[in-house]
Design a protein around this nucleic acid. Sequence first.
DNA 1: ATGCTATTTAGAATTAGTCTATACTCCGCA
DNA 2: TGCGGAGTATAGACTAATTCTAAATAGCAT
Lengths: 135, 135
Amino acid sequence: MAGLDIERLLQRHGVMPTLQRREVAGVLLDKPQHLSAEQIIDCLRLAGSRVSKATVYNTLKIFSDCGLVREVNVDSTRKFYDSTTHAHHHFYNVDTGELNDIPCELVDFLSLPPLPQGTEQESVEVLIRLRSKTD
Amino acid sequence: MAGLDIERLLQRHGVMPTLQRREVAGVLLDKPQHLSAEQIIDCLRLAGSRVSKATVYNTLKIFSDCGLVREVNVDSTRKFYDSTTHAHHHFYNVDTGELNDIPCELVDFLSLPPLPQGTEQESVEVLIRLRSKTD
DNA sequence: ATGCTATTTAGAATTAGTCTATACTCCGCA
DNA sequence: TGCGGAGTATAGACTAATTCTAAATAGCAT
């Protein structure tokens, strides 16, 4: 994604496009992918950026609050940030740690349970856990 | 669950039924529930047990390796251990942190995606995220 | 009793993430 | 041209959950 596009994208989501935010967005929103905060920091450092850890965490929080990225919990040791925000599901390979998208049109429900009293649905996520075949 | 039952349950899963393991099993396998390691430790302490933290963590690892309990990742800050191991799904209230079971017969799929080459399916989990209704 | 293996333990170490207090940046305005 | 304030960024201290390590213990077979 080009610099100008990123700038406008941030603005459209009500986020002031500071240098640091544009750098974080540049890494994560580059393509459909799932990165942890630490992976993003490593990427930035490799590219010569001096953004601080705190800023990266703050920025990812802002991005996910405003719907620019999505948090994914598959691994209880860290959060992943997903650059794809529209409804979709995941394959998670427990052997390799690989996390891959499943387009939402490949999953259809015949039935879903009624929601508990006093709650509303935020999302329905399907996670298919995989193992690498050994035979 | 009575002490003798727990003992036999552990043995059937190939786990030596030591005092500490029987205590941990006694807390978690008491009923269908989801507890974090720290919650289990608190429970044990309240009941006067002196099992160490390390043992609780080791024990939970052993239990989930042998299929006696199931790990659940909904919250990236800690693991939950689920005393129900057969296929089922979850409601997770992001406002309250409550985690509840959905019996698997309440969810039916019309279609699921093909698995990637060289992998086999370990599980299909549906997570319905909820918010407490504010209106 | 002796030795062997599995288990338990306290506490140190690790890891991801949050917090805090200070510093910087940008902008309107005197 | 300089001041003030809002919004951001930063280093580094801190926290919470979990894992590691090395030493103690338990139970069983000689």
